[in-house]
Amino acid sequence: MDLTLLMYLIPSLIMFGCGVYGFITRKNMIAMLISLELMLNSADINFVVFNRYLFPAQHEGMFFTLFAIAIAAAETAVAIAIIINVYRIAKNVDINKITKMKF
């Protein structure tokens, strides 16, 4: 069976939706970060698939994906560091309990 463009795009969109859903519903900050990774990775899949199927002559999408992966790794590192700091000072990572500043 030949794999078509849609067979990649639909899982990637489902991944993106799961990421958005997880980011909104999860209470644990680490789980929110995992949801964010899902969203970033689905964008990466889109780039690679569009490149492979629609514009195979150049590799612009592939290069963009490489940079996007590196940027995502940096974002995760910074976010984890900040979450660890929050844990040290507040003793939890529950987003519902980090509400000292509101409105």
Binding site: F23, M32, L36, L40, E75, A79, I82, V86, I98
Partner: peptide, 13 residues
């Protein structure tokens, strides 16, 4: 720290 956590999560989102 609370501000930074909110900032980084929304920034990545």
């Amino acid at each position: 720290h609370e501000a930074a956590a909110k900032y980084v999560l929304t920034a990545v989102f």
